[in-house]
């Protein structure tokens, strides 16, 4: 049990260890595959992904009022490879430049005066990112 947990933790890539090459992050951040069904929940959760704040997503049309600050994510899996989607979710700046309004969900390259209880914390955990990426990969 203890050995498994230690190995599992050893597979987690910490935010400052993430390597982006050619807009891609090759490996799972958590060391485990993402769960698309869970990712759909994380995506819609206002306290987690809150992606509907900015993105239209027809797969979640039961949720009212999708934002339009960002583009529609309908068919996003046909536009980006999963390794690129991972980069976008981890730190959109790496793909869309520093000027992007989209937050970095697994990055400590954040703004000034972070709320004290959130200092050193990422918006999403490694597994949550994997789940969201797996979910995005189903949007064809």
């Amino acid at each position: 049990m203890i050995i498994t947990t230690t190995l599992a933790l050893a597979d987690v890539t910490l935010p400052d260890e993430v390597v982006v090459e050619n807009l891609r992050i090759e490996k799972s951040l958590s060391g485990s595959p993402g769960d698309a069904a869970q990712g759909r929940k994380t995506f819609a959760d206002r306290s987690l992904g809150n992606c509907l704040a900015c993105h239209l997503n027809s797969d979640l049309s039961d949720e009212l009022f999708h934002g339009n600050v960002g583009p529609s994510l309908d068919g996003v899996a046909t536009r980006w490879k999963p390794e690129q989607l991972r980069t976008i979710v981890v730190n959109a700046k790496k793909v869309f430049t520093e000027r992007t309004i989209m937050p970095g969900f697994y990055s400590l390259d954040v703004g000034e005066d972070v709320r004290e209880d959130l200092i050193g914390k990422t918006i999403l955990t490694a597994q949550q990112v994997e789940d969201v990426v797996a979910y995005l990969n189903t949007l064809e």
Binding site: P103, V110, G111, E112, V114, L118
Partner: peptide
């Protein structure tokens, strides 16, 4: 200035 964990500036929302 970009602020907070979400890294937003007033300008992001109200100008951009």
């Amino acid at each position: 200035s970009r602020m907070g964990q979400l890294d937003f500036s007033c300008a992001n929302c109200h100008e951009q």
